[in-house]
Simulated scan of single mutants.
Amino acid sequence: MKATWDIFCSVVDNYGDIGVTWRLARQLAAEHGLAVRLWVDDLGAFVRLCPQAEVQAPRQTQQSVEICLWPADWQEVVEPADVVIEAFACELPAAYIAAMAGREQKVLWLNLEYLSAEDWVEGCHGLPSMQSNGLSKFFFFPGFTPGSGGLLRERGLLAQRRAFQADERARDEFLRDLGVEPLAGALLISLFAYENAALGSWLEVLAAGPQRIQLLVPEGRILSSLQGWLGSPALQVGDACQRGQLHIQVLPFISQDQYDRLLWSCDFNAVRGEDSFIRAQWAGRPLLWHIYEQADGAHLEKLNAFLALYKEGLSAEAQVALARLWDAWNSNGPMGECWTQLLKNWPEQIVHAEQWCLERASQADLAEALVQFYLNWL
C-alpha cells in the first residue's frame, strides 16, 4: 500500500505558504507515488494557484492530491496519515493530534519550517521535540546547504528550463499568450514584490537609462507602489504605459507553471517571500529578493545570511554591488546608483546565477529529503 501523507497549511496573508505546500504535495504524489492529502484553511487562496479547483468543495482531487478544507471548527473523524507535516508552525487540530497519539501504527510528525540560510539551521534540522502525549515532533528545515532539508525542485525542472530558454520562439509565444509583445533589444524584468517605497528610485533610473526596459508586473501588492510612482488611478490587468526607456505592463495572476516560465523568460527577476524566491533561483538568472518583513529586523538577518552564501564566487566589486542593491530594496533606500553599479558587473552576475543554480541542484531536493527522512525513521 502507498504510504499516506497529510500536509496541513494555514494561509496567512500571502500565497507563499499555500504555494510551497501545493508544490510539495504534487511532487510527493507524482514523483514518489504517495497518497497525499493537503489540508487548507482557505480554498479561495488555493483556487488562485489551481484555477480548475472548486472553491466550495470540502474535498476534491487535483493532480493526484486530495484537497481537503481545514475548517476552523474541526469536526473531522479521520485516520491520521503515516506522515503528518505541520507546515510553517501552523497548529494541528487537537482532535487530530489525539488521533495520532491513539493510532496503533506510529506516525512521523514533521514541523516543516520556513526557509533560512542562517548558520544554526543545520544544527537544528532533524531534531526531535518530545510532546506531552508521548509523540515526537521533528523539525525539518529547508535550506541551501547539504546539512539542511534542501529546496523544492521537481525532476527534470532544470532541463525543461534550459530547453525553454534556448527556444526564443517558445519564449515569445508564451509572452504573447500573456498579452505581452516582446520588444526588440529590451532587457526583460519581472517584478513581484510587497509594497516598497524604494520602487520609485529604481523605476527612475530604469526610465532614464540607455537601454530599453520591459517591466512585467504580475497582479499583486506591488501595484499600489507602482501606481504611486506613475501618479495613475488603480492599475488593472492588461494596463501598459511607457516612461522614457521603461515599458510597463500589468499581467494577470498566473498559475505556478506559468510563473516559472515568466521567470525563465526574463533577464532579471524581482521576487518576494519564499516560493517565488526559490523559483527565481532555478531560473538561473540574476535576481532581487524582497524578503517578508519581520519584527525587530529579524528578516534582515535572514537576508544577510543568504547573501553571505550567494555572494561566494563573485568578485569583490560584484559582491558589493549585489549587497548594496538588495539592502536598498529591503530598507527603502535609494536604488538608482545601486542598479547602475550592478550593471557594471552584469555579465559576471549572469554567469554566477547559473552556477549557483547548478550547485543547489546537485543536492537532494526537499521532497526527496522528506521521503528519505521517513524511510530512515522507519
Rank of each mutant, 00 (worst) to 15 (best):
E173A: 10
R176V: 03
R176M: 04
R176F: 06
D177C: 03
L178I: 00
L178G: 14
V180F: 11
V180T: 08
E181D: 15
P182K: 02
P182F: 00
P182V: 03
A184K: 07
G185V: 02
A186I: 03
L187H: 13
L188D: 15
L188A: 13
I189V: 03
I189L: 08
L191H: 05
L191F: 01
Y194K: 01
E195R: 08
E195S: 12
N196V: 04
A197K: 12
A198E: 02
A198D: 09
L199R: 06
G200E: 14
G200C: 03
S201A: 02
W202H: 11
V205N: 07
V205I: 05
L206E: 07
A207C: 01
A208K: 03
A208R: 06
G209E: 07
P210C: 01
R212Y: 04
I213L: 00
I213Y: 07
L216M: 12
V217C: 13
P218M: 04
G220E: 12
I222H: 10
S224C: 13
S224M: 13
G228S: 15
G228D: 15
G228C: 05
G228E: 15
G231L: 10
P233M: 05
P233T: 10
P233W: 10
L235R: 03
Q236T: 14
G238P: 09
G238D: 10
Q242R: 12
R243H: 11
Q245S: 01
L246C: 04
L246R: 11
H247P: 11
Q249R: 09
Q249G: 01
Q249I: 05
V250E: 00
L251Q: 01
I254H: 10
I254E: 12
Q256A: 07
Q258D: 15
Y259W: 10
R261A: 02
L263M: 03
W264E: 08
W264T: 06
S265D: 04
C266H: 08
C266I: 05
D267A: 00
D267W: 00
N269T: 02
N269Q: 04
A270W: 12
G273N: 14
G273Y: 14
G273K: 13
E274N: 07
E274T: 13
D275M: 00
S276K: 11
S276D: 15
S276C: 11
F277V: 09
I278L: 07
Q281E: 08
Q281N: 06
Q281S: 08
W282H: 14
W282L: 05
W282M: 04
A283N: 01
A283M: 04
L287Y: 06
L288M: 09
L288I: 12
W289N: 10
Y292N: 05
Y292K: 04
Y292L: 02
Y292W: 09
Y292F: 13
Y292D: 11
Q294N: 00
A295W: 10
D296T: 00
D296M: 00
A298W: 08
A298Q: 10
